[in-house]
């Protein structure tokens, strides 16, 4: 485990060695900037399945040594409910209500709970596991959380990193299907409300962390998309006003999407001591993302039936 071998089921028909652009690799290695520079890419609003596929493609190709660490910012072509890897879509999501409201549903490669992406900045970070200190999951949340905090503080938002709590009982999956309903270790809160929700996919040498920074939040719509007892729905919406926050509900002056994106770039640069060079996604990354989109993230099997069901339907393949 902890290894991102290219999952064979995901990559049937994909020849990694042939599809990596030699020129890109040469340029990356040749400039001697593998450690000092990260890439900053803004891929704009994307379709739900493609957004998730591209995040996984960035991780796979970075793990394979074919790309620099990357901070990506993006948005969504339509409101999208993203689910954690292990969530049961049919039990936890009202798929018919989502469709009726024009809300796309996609399962993430990462853990955690459901997020309604709409008026927000979505970030994803693909980076090597930390070398200068513990490389635990929690430590990565802390370090990336510091970068996110620096970004939001520069916009005048007084954010706090949630402190780890001493474990007194076994950790259980939280009761609410909504990500923003619970503050995890080293996630960010402002004015007592969770303001960034994040999740990870861990590989052997690298990790993907992506997350949602809402500028505005439609709590009513969130709980219409989730399967909750009808008599509890309004109470959950009201509770969400005290537990879930959005940037422009807290910022002293209205903040724009580009301002948050610029602040993120600066926050990561300062926190990790790297230069973030704005660039675009490589052709190999686009092609791998398209492949993963078709094979995985655009299928009802993955999104609705779950990861285990999707895995069972893949052809048996060896590495």
């Amino acid at each position: 485990m902890l290894r991102t071998a290219i999952p064979p089921a995901s990559l049937a028909g994909w020849q990694l060695s042939e599809d990596i652009d030699g020129a890109v690799l040469t340029a990356l290695v040749g400039c001697g900037a593998m450690q000092q520079s990260w890439r900053f890419v803004n891929t704009g609003n994307g379709e739900a399945a493609f957004n998730m596929a591209l995040d996984e493609a960035l991780l796979l190709l970075h793990e394979a040594g074919a790309a620099l660490p990357t901070l990506r910012v993006y948005g969504w072509c339509q409101p999208t409910l993203s689910l954690g890897y292990a969530q049961n879509a049919r039990q936890e999501v009202d798929l018919a209500a989502c469709q009726a409201q024009g809300v796309a549903v996609v399962r993430r490669p990462t853990g955690g709970r459901a997020v309604l992406h709409d008026q927000e900045v979505t970030y994803s970070v693909v980076m090597p596991l930390l070398a200068d200190g513990p490389s635990t999951t929690t430590e990565h949340y802390r370090r990336i959380g510091m970068a996110l905090a620096a970004a939001l503080q520069s916009l005048g938002i007084p954010v706090h990193l949630a402190r780890p709590q001493v474990r007194t009982a076994p950790v259980r999956t939280p009761a609410s299907p909504a990500c923003f309903a619970a503050l995890s270790r080293y996630e960010l809160s402002a004015a007592g409300k969770k303001i960034v929700g994040s999740a990870q996919k861990r590989a052997q040498r690298a990790l993907l962390q992506h997350g949602s920074i809402p500028l505005w939040m439609d709590r009513q719509r969130l709980f219409q998309c989730l399967r909750v007892p009808p008599e509890r729905r309004e109470a959950l919406v009201q509770e969400a006003y005290t537990t879930m926050g959005a940037v422009n509900e807290i910022a002293p002056t209205p903040v724009t999407l580009p301002a948050v994106q610029d602040a993120l770039r600066q926050g990561f640069s300062t926190t990790f001591g790297v230069e973030l060079v704005e660039t675009s996604i490589s052709p190999a990354e686009w092609r791998l993302a398209q492949h993963l989109r078709t094979m995985k993230y655009a299928t009802d099997t993955w999104n609705h039936d779950g990861a285990a069901a999707w895995r069972q339907r893949q052809p048996v393949a060896s590495v």
């Binding site: 485990m1 902890l2 292990a86 490669p109 990870q200 048996v316 393949a317």
Partner: peptide, 26 residues
Amino acid sequence: PEVGTTIEAMGTFGVVESVKAVSDLY
């Protein structure tokens, strides 16, 4: 995986999730 599943050495056989982080099992 379910009993009866055939697997290849170093192929994935499952997943663990911890602190909202997903990792494959080999």
